[in-house]
């Protein structure tokens, strides 16, 4: 696949489902941008299929999902399933929101690379993204 700029990490920050709380997504998006990441923000109310389409169109290295409505198990799983279906499982999926600790192991098993819950410093997220994707 043709790559635009090997050194520039490209992330789609997405709000799947019907949840309208975008404070966290926007803060993380800005923080990533401030550390040199190219960020595409999807806006609210995205179906998993739209998010995967965006990630493929934008040739993204990763997708950051934010869900505060409790629908994370369904929506994260659906994004991962669609990525596999489209042969794009190399796109790193991470996320955050109001996600109980008890759900995190199952999300990791599904293939989510990392889950960041409330109170996580933005620095921890941006550092993680750079560490995971800089070598790619």
């Amino acid at each position: 696949m043709e790559r635009k700029n090997v050194n520039r990490i490209r992330i789609v920050v997405a709000k799947p489902g019907l949840d309208g709380h975008d404070r966290g997504a926007k803060v993380v998006a800005r923080a990533l941008r401030d550390t040199g990441v190219e960020v595409v923000y999807t806006g609210l109310h995205q179906a998993p299929r739209q998010i995967v389409d965006t990630a493929l169109q934008e040739d993204a290295d990763g997708i950051g999902l934010s869900v505060l409505s409790g629908a994370h198990m369904t929506l994260f799983a659906e994004v991962l399933r669609l990525l596999r279906e489209r042969g794009a499982q190399d796109i790193l999926v991470f996320g955050g929101g109001i996600i109980p600790d008890a759900d995190i192991p199952e999300l990791l098993d599904l293939g989510v690379a990392a889950v960041f819950t409330p109170g996580t410093p933005t620095r921890a997220i941006t550092d993680w993204v750079h560490t995971r994707l800089s070598a790619a």
Binding site: G17, L18, D19, H45, A47, S69, G70, A71, M73, T74, L75, E78
Partner: peptide
């Protein structure tokens, strides 16, 4: 959220919510 967005519980976008 489906009620708040004017969707029935069986609408595809309501899945999981």
């Amino acid at each position: 959220l489906p009620t708040q967005m004017g969707h029935d519980s069986d609408a595809p976008i309501a899945h999981g919510e």
